[in-house]
């Protein structure tokens, strides 16, 4: 039982800027739930000019009450109130020559309840010209983009860089949701029936009873449905967050982005709501 969501979008920013914004997307006003981001591995291959990065994000989240109601207390433990946090592992590969960035994020906690794998592929649009010309134009484009990525944060130059290029980046997003809830218990039960080790016998009565009343498949389907609803709600926030970062880059270059991040981080530490929009779900459940 797997739920799947997918969408495509186009950013009005050149590909290199979008890849940079991806690395710089936390914190932003739409991601106040992201507590930390660490790079835990990075590998540059000079041969292929590909950069592989693995990062670990810690996000604060709230389990939907619909889920906490479905699950037994023994599984929820300290998170029975719904407040929890999740480690997200993100892997990305950037190929600047071929013009793509492939990213994948997955939750490391609660995977037994619901595993969420989010994939985003960013692509420089293919020019509709013969190969030899394409190569030449690619070089020229790269040269023009230099102003945009000026480390000194030359605001005016950066703006001109973007507007003159009119370059865009395509993004394909997909989210796969898969609930495994109950599967481990079922395996244990089968193992017990086959007469093999029954070391976890004391755990069984409650869980078996709980599953009997629901049926594993129904429970999984419900949890995936809830996850999908949440995904649909959080996707616009994720997109808006990227756009805020890209806008800051356009306005003030890299320095502008870093300054924005500093302010967001201060606000988060002080517990201020960066959006102050009533009735908006807390930016966060992506």
């Amino acid at each position: 039982m797997v739920k799947f969501y997918s969408s495509t979008d186009t950013y009005s920013y050149p590909f290199p800027a979008v890849t940079l914004a991806y690395f710089l997307r936390y914190p932003n006003p739409y991601s106040t739930h992201v507590l930390s981001t660490d790079t835990i591995a990075r590998d540059f291959d000079p041969e292929t000019q590909r950069l592989t990065t693995i990062r670990l994000h810690l996000k604060r989240s709230k389990l939907p009450s619909a889920v906490t109601k479905l699950l037994p207390r023994s599984l929820l433990g300290a998170s029975a109130s719904g407040d929890t946090q999740t480690y997200i592992l993100e892997k990305s590969v950037v190929d600047v020559k071929e013009g793509w960035m492939d990213t994948e994020s997955r939750n490391l906690e609660w995977t037994g309840v619901l595993s969420v794998i989010e994939r985003q592929v960013f692509r420089r649009p293919m020019p509709e010209v013969p190969d030899e010309v394409k190569l030449f134009q690619g070089m020229e484009g790269a040269a023009r983009r230099h102003g945009f990525l000026n480390f000194g944060g030359n605001g005016a130059g950066a703006k001109v860089g973007v507007d003159l290029n009119g370059e865009t980046t395509e993004v394909e997003s997909s989210v796969t949701l898969h609930s495994h809830v109950g599967e481990a218990w079922r395996k244990k039960r089968l193992a017990a029936q086959e007469g093999s080790s029954s070391s976890s016998e004391e755990e069984q009565p409650q869980k078996v009873g709980f599953l009997r009343s629901w049926g594993t498949a129904t429970l999984q389907r419900n949890i995936e449905k809830i996850g999908l609803t949440r995904t649909l709600r959080s996707q616009p926030n994720a997109r808006e967050g990227m756009k805020v970062v890209l806008e800051r880059m356009r306005e003030g270059g890299l320095v502008g982005v870093l300054e924005g991040m500093r302010k967001d981080r201060e606000a988060i530490l002080q517990g201020r709501d960066l959006l102050k929009r009533d009735g908006t779900p807390r930016a966060g459940e992506d």
Partner: peptide, 9 residues
């Protein structure tokens, strides 16, 4: 960030 924007990209 400096390396990425000035060299890698």
């Amino acid at each position: 960030l400096k390396w990425y924007s000035e060299k890698f990209l």
